[in-house]
């Protein structure tokens, strides 16, 4: 357990969190689908309270990386360490219990359940009463359920959703559904939150609100956030470190300013200027 990793030399922002175990570390991971290597040589380390962005053109392998990090796919090469522990061979739910929570590009809520139930499912592992104590309604059940419901109220309050508790998740407006998905993943008490295109389908004012929310999550929950996003304003506005992906490989890493002026990145996005 908690094997410390020596010198995380490839931190996105080396001056932060130096000397601590990164919450998440990828060491030269790669995955092949048939003959195609979708991701290769992906190496990154994310500090405890870092906000980091992954950008890249369509099909660059961004979502594949999230699926690798949550063990939906098993990497062909390399290793992933969460909190210094190799996640090889773990199931997706074990990885979540280790501290990796995520949202999905196309929202995946429990649509027919209420907002409260959605968040309570996120709190599943923060309760530990047995099947028997639930069936027989033993005191442990009442105590933990009460605490969980209070926690739900707190979480929903932070995201201004406390008046939606009894609504069906599927009937919420789009922005609220995105927020609920974030609340649900935060309920699992993660060390790092992976957001897959959180601003997709949002208008500029909603995006601005989302930026505030993401900062608030980092500041109030003290967790790291890794996000995939196409909205450059959002990425440049809140990320402390950015990795640019193209054809499954990192072509640039650095702070927003470095990325903005990096000729390789400009080439990947806009194409090469003719001589």
């Amino acid at each position: 357990m908690n094997k410390l990793v020596k010198e995380p030399s490839y931190n996105l922002i080396p001056e932060r969190d130096l000397g601590k175990t990164p919450i998440l570390e990828c060491r030269r991971i790669g995955i092949d689908f048939g003959g195609l290597s979708a991701v290769d040589e992906f190496t990154i380390a994310i500090g405890r309270t870092e906000i980091c962005g992954i950008i890249g053109p369509n099909g660059a392998g961004k979502t594949t990386i999230f699926n690798l990090l949550t063990n939906v796919y098993r990497p062909t090469r390399g290793s992933i360490l969460v909190n210094g522990v190799d996640t090889l061979g773990m199931t997706t739910d074990e990885v979540n219990r280790r501290g990796v929570a995520r949202t999905f590009q196309n929202i995946r809520l429990f649509k027919d359940l209420t907002v409260e139930e959605n968040v309570l499912i996120g709190l599943h592992n923060s309760m530990n009463y047995s099947v028997a104590s639930s069936m027989l309604r033993l005191p442990k059940y009442w105590k933990q359920e009460k605490e969980a419901r209070e926690r739900v109220r707190e979480l929903l309050h932070i995201f201004h959703m406390e008046n939606m508790t009894a609504q069906q998740a599927g009937s919420l407006p789009y922005g609220a559904q995105r927020r609920l998905e974030i609340v649900r993943s935060l309920a699992t008490n993660p060390g790092i939150l992976l957001l897959d295109e959180p601003a997709a389908g949002m208008n500029p004012s909603e995006t601005a609100e989302l930026m505030e929310t993401i900062r608030k999550i980092r500041d109030e929950f003290h967790i790291a956030i890794m996000l995939i996003e196409h909205d450059m304003k959002l990425v440049m506005g809140i990320c402390e470190g950015i990795a640019v992906l193209n054809y499954g490989r990192i072509i640039a890493k650095g702070t927003p300013d470095e990325i903005r002026n990096n000729p390789v990145v400009i080439e990947a996005y806009l194409g090469k200027e003719d001589e």
């Binding site: 997706t92 739910d93 995520r102 999905f104 995946r108 499912i121 592992n125 993943s185």
Partner: peptide
Amino acid sequence: IAAESCGIN
């Protein structure tokens, strides 16, 4: 998929 990523076995 969402259940799994919420830590449910």
